[in-house]
Design a protein around this nucleic acid. Sequence first.
RNA 1: GGGGGCGUAGCUCAAUUUGGUUAGAGUACCGGACUGUCGAUCCGGUGGUUGCGGGUUCGAGCCCCGUCGCCCUCGCCA
Length: 591
Amino acid sequence: MSGEALRRTHTCGELRRSDIRKEVVLSGWVRSTRDHGGLIFIDLRDRYGVTQVVANPEPDTEIHRIAEKLRPEDVVTIRGEVNERPSGTRNTSMPTGEVEVVARGIVVENRAKTPPFEIADDVNVSEETRLRYRYLDLRRPAVQRSLIFRSDLCNQIRRYFSERSFIEVETPFLTKSTPEGARDFLVPSRITKGSFYALPQSPQLFKQLLMVSGFDRYYQIVRCFRDEDLRADRQPEFTQLDIEMSFVDEPDVQGIIEGLLVRLGDTLLGRKIQTPFPRLRYDDVMLKYGSDRPDLRFGLEIRDVTEIAREVDFKIFRGAAEGGGAVRALNLSGGGALPRQQIDALEKVAKDAGAGGLAWFKVQDGALTAGPAAKFIAASAQARFIEALEGKTNDLLLFVADKKRSVVAKALGELRMHLARTRGMIPNDVFHFSWIVDFPLLNWNEEEKRYEAEHHPFTSPKPADVPKLESDPLAVRARAYDLVLNGIELGGGSIRIHTRELQQRVFSLLQIDEQAAMRKFGFLLEALEFGAPPHGGIALGLDRMVMLFQGLQSLREVIAFPKTSSGSCLLTEAPSVVEARQLQEVGIRVL
RNA sequence: GGGGGCGUAGCUCAAUUUGGUUAGAGUACCGGACUGUCGAUCCGGUGGUUGCGGGUUCGAGCCCCGUCGCCCUCGCCA
């Protein structure tokens, strides 16, 4: 074939019986060839699908000569006629399998080296190799589906918020470092040597300023940056769906998000999402599930038995109860049959989570047996424990006692998740959304001997608790809410502080003195004095949402070019050293 | 920063009781045969700095030390 370039008329996923006898042009990548000596079959792939092309030596030997030299991943344009496949040779497993294109001309647009791995979904290849050749990995249909889903999700989000009069506003990436919270990525300023921008951990302050400006309903799909260690579900740069609204209360923000998730369920997931989501109090979930992001797809709730433990002879129990701590327990129904070795493994889980140990008992006819500590507990107390935990014969009761309630909660929370995972108690294909509410505004940082904001310093305290701000700070509840899905925090938000006075009081509690507050957040404090409306919002982790909706285990699967767990990009080899001249220009010396 | 796992052919993995002849397999790749395949098939072949550096030993893929990379995890992530 010669002359001017052919333009494709169809994609590789498109041809059907109704196209038979049409003259078509397809472009794509050679997925595979099957050379029978005579006939050659070419599977041609693009992102829409695969179509079989046939090259017959008769009548055109030229085409056959080109076809037999084709190799996987060569890029070709093929002109030909759509034919019905002979009966018995149709492939019902592919959408285009009723037809094939008989090649009348083949243009090799570009040759491909042998790829390091076959471009197919079921190919076993290490993630390291995939990331090194990410552009090839992204040719695989399953990976393409993830990114296409992500694009569809963003489109639905934009439509949803646009329909509701929200405005998408872009906020700066080169901005001011705010040392509260996560570590900032810093960017040196060339013009003002010795000064630095920071990449935003979130557009928090800008969206609040937009409320002051009167933009009343804002959203943004926006990149955020945090210079902390990575995990399967944490990348140094990630995408948030960021929302802020004026003149709203908690239910307004929650309702908007619930409506969005219903829409996404209807349009993308093919499932009805039930609203409203349950509102669960922080204190309750910490007690019942040992976590502020409980996985509610299964039961196995933790019970507090501190009051019973107060009256037993077992020193560890009584000591914890009398020392202001807690004794709590899980009932593993039917766990009485567990061998000692497995119970020891459970104890290790509890200890790794910070517990001093794990007290366990088997239930037998209304009494505690088989646990090392059973003999220290009187029959009457045994009966009360069993009643509190709804124990039946052959159940296994697992107790953690500690003078710190947080230790008990964490250990049993970890144990609960461990048991659920290892014993197959977590149902697949269930989306269990919930709101966690009534968070404390502050927590006490023992190492730094100061209060910290549980969410961030701009979260409003509950009006009823404001009088306690100075007298009993830890009792102050926040107007904050976290959205949790299947044990993963999808997002969090709050009603914000919108007066300078209150904001200043909270800064004081956080031991940010007036001077420091002005230096770090002066622009916000000043803005609050120029008619800041009451406002609040939320931010959802978009990458996590895509990951969970797609049933994937790693954020790297839903980000086109992700970082490894050491923060490097295997494709570009970033981060890398830079030339001395570049350093000099920005006034930086490497230590 | 701590703990654990991994690193052998382009890719995915194997290699016996802490060591013993020329490091194997599948797949990919190359060549040949083949006119209805679709993970084509059949025959033949090429392919190795065992991550890197050092050490122990008569002898190291295997043991020891260091180092680099990847994965998981604790700390960290307002």
